[in-house]
């Protein structure tokens, strides 16, 4: 059709009684990898999606399974790259470009949405069976037992991870306990670090000018030299804190003692803060060093606590509980650090 282009992940079309269905590649190309990097760093923003609807992999027939997923491109990619030895239909729900779990959490990935896509794709004319294989993570939003009434198809929960789809199919569409259990491996945690850090850019660039201005205040009212020198030290401490809270805390998560994230961030920040004041600036007095250390601890505790939003095991009730304890400490610590930082030049 005029004006249309074929997505780079499509390598042909399968004829069906309901018209042609795009066949997807089951390996990822350079464009996919580049897109993954953009999404993982937050550069792509929230716009990394594909058109919802029916796709297929291999050479599916009317008996082939129907796998349901979200229209976030990373979700779609993680599914299709597992299908190299399978003939399957892929029904992509319109989740506004959000991944399976989060979209289900916000109820955009729902039984209604799946039913809509089933009808839109005329799925009942394409397959002879009446079964949809749903990602287990969709269960927060998709009440599988209501699908039958809404679209004539039954929903069956497949494994949590797309990587287990081949094993699930081989097992006679049965998921074992490991397939149904969420994991949070060091690799999975590391993949979340870039977005954690990139989400802080906006605040970081708001804070940095403030740090420089505060650093210049002294007995001479305002010293440009102090503004630059002490300002850089303060920015260095801030970067150290972000690395402690948003990188080290997530990666070392199970090995840092304690359960509450604000405490884990506090510990990591404490150690990194000590390292920072030992390594940087011998001329700094005790008060300045104390201020820098407090600053690192407070910010690392906050950024560490912020990671609760990315884990697959923290309950909202628990997060609210720990925030009520953590926030006063973090806020008080940061405030005290700023006061000490301003007062220090007058005392020296």
């Amino acid at each position: 059709m005029p004006g249309y282009t074929v997505n780079p992940f499509v390598d042909g079309f399968q004829e069906t009684p309901a018209g042609p269905v795009p066949r997807v590649k089951t390996s990822l190309g350079p464009a996919d990898h580049l897109g993954t990097i953009r999404a993982r760093t937050g550069i792509a923003g929230n716009q990394y999606k594909i058109n919802p609807g029916l796709y297929c992999a291999g050479n599916p027939s009317s008996h082939s399974p129907v796998l349901v997923t979200a229209n976030y491109k990373l979700s779609f990619d993680s599914l299709r790259k597992e299908l190299s030895n399978l003939d399957a239909w892929i029904l992509v729900a319109d989740t506004r470009g959000i991944n399976v779990w989060c979209a289900a959490g916000k109820k955009t990935f729902s039984a209604d949405e799946i039913a809509l896509q089933v009808k839109r794709a005329k799925l009942s004319a394409i397959v002879s069976h009446r079964q949809l294989i749903l990602p287990q993570f969709a269960a927060i939003g998709v009440a599988a037992h209501t699908l039958q009434k809404k679209c004539g198809f039954n929903g069956v929960f497949g494994p949590l991870r797309a990587a287990d789809i081949p094993r699930f199919m081989k097992n006679g569409r049965q998921a074992d306990e490991p397939m149904r259990t969420v994991t949070f491996t060091v690799t999975e945690r590391s993949l979340l670090v870039p977005v954690e850090i990139c989400m802080l850019w906006k605040v970081f660039f708001l804070v940095v000018p403030g740090l420089f201005i505060l650093s210049g205040i002294g007995p001479d009212i305002f010293s440009f030299k102090a503004c630059v020198e002490r300002g850089l030290t303060a920015v260095g401490a801030t970067v150290t804190a972000i690395l402690a809270g948003s990188m080290l805390t997530p990666i070392l998560l199970p090995w840092i003692p304690g359960r509450q994230f604000w405490l884990k961030g506090l510990l990591t920040g404490g150690v990194m803060g000590l390292a920072f004041i030992f390594l940087v600036n011998d001329q700094a007095g005790v008060m300045e060093k104390g201020s820098l250390w407090l600053w690192v601890v407070a910010i690392a505790s906050y950024t560490g606590m912020n990671f609760t939003g990315a884990t697959p095991f923290t309950s909202l009730s628990g997060v609210e509980k720990e925030m009520q304890r953590g926030l006063p400490v973090q806020f008080g610590g940061a405030l005290l650090a700023i006061v000490l930082w301003i007062v220090a030049p007058f005392v020296n």
């Binding site: 959490g105 269960a139 989400m199 912020n306 939003g309 909202l316």
Partner: peptide, 23 residues
């Protein structure tokens, strides 16, 4: 969500969010 007889109650607050979101 998947209980056909509504026998399960879970904190209904919609909050899979980071600290910033909760604030």
């Amino acid at each position: 969500n998947n209980c056909p007889v509504a026998a399960i109650y879970v904190n209904p607050d919609d909050g899979c969010g980071c600290a910033a979101y909760i604030i």
